[in-house]
């Protein structure tokens, strides 16, 4: 029986991932801001096969929320087998450019809170010597682009942190997974026109569940983003700067 914690548990991708994990049973600890929404996800996972569900309402955008949720987590579970970090928001790039306060707030919820959680979790995972830490970052961390670099930079910080953490835990059996979704059709991206590159949360959730099961390291989902980003990373600046990307 696995103990699974999900931060940002009612985000579309987290919920879809949990649905793929629940049929094999497991005890779930769900963290998010709104306890009503957490309860709905918990009930759903219970029907799908989760053996136990716990919810903890906490605002991860403030450091106190990060500390409180880790404390509550280890008050409930002695050990954690899978930790999935899926919370975050899509900041308004233009608004961030005009307001340092918004930029810093975007960094807090999309980067610093992850780094805080990971610091606390890493210690526990290092001691227990096993388990999986999976973090949803983004393809947008692969290269800064004028349209989205505040979000991208926060995600890149997390990715680099994960690289280091993976290095540190290499001697243990702890898996550290960096999940980089491309465009996903979720409430967070409701304002965008959708094209053929867009994937459903269900598809991305299935990929994440598989990555957790198989213990991958860096996962692009859907898979073709690995190649799109390979190209984008390698486009010379004099060409890249002419694009509107």
């Amino acid at each position: 029986m696995k103990n699974i914690v999900i931060f940002g548990a009612y985000s579309a991708i987290a919920e879809a991932t949990a649905r793929h994990l629940a049929p094999s049973g497991g005890r779930f600890f769900l963290v998010g801001r709104d306890s009503g929404k957490l309860d709905q996800v918990a009930a759903d996972l219970k029907v799908r096969g989760a053996t136990e569900t716990h919810v903890f309402a906490s605002d991860l955008a403030v450091p106190a929320g990060v500390l409180a949720s880790i404390e509550a987590l280890y008050g409930t579970f002695d050990t954690v087998d899978v930790a999935l970090l899926a919370h975050g928001t899509l900041p308004d790039q233009k608004a961030c450019e005009a307001d340092a306060g918004q930029t810093l707030a975007a960094f807090e919820i999309n980067g610093l809170s992850h780094i805080g959680l990971l610091t606390l979790l890493a210690e526990r995972f290092e001691t227990q010597g096993t388990g999986t830490i999976a973090v949803i970052t983004s393809v947008s961390g692969d290269r800064g682009r004028q349209s989205n670099y505040v979000y991208g930079a926060a995600k890149r910080a997390v990715s680099t942190f994960l690289d280091g953490l993976r290095h540190r835990l290499a001697a243990t059996s702890v898996q550290v997974i960096d999940i980089r979704p491309g465009f996903v059709d979720t409430p967070m991206t409701a304002a965008f026109d959708k094209g053929p590159l867009w994937a459903s949360p269900d598809k991305v959730g299935a990929d994440i569940a598989r990555a957790i099961e198989k213990g991958r390291t860096v996962v692009y989902t859907p898979w073709f983003w690995r190649y799109i980003m390979l190209i984008i990373r390698n486009v010379p600046a004099f060409v890249f700067h002419k694009t509107k990307l």
Binding site: A12, Q40, V41, A43, D44, K46, V47, R48
Partner: peptide
């Protein structure tokens, strides 16, 4: 399409709410 959560299921009686 995304209003798609199960709410409760009783495996004894087969009553499903979703």
């Amino acid at each position: 399409r995304h209003l798609d959560r199960f709410i409760s299921f009783d495996p004894e009686s087969g009553v499903l709410r979703c």
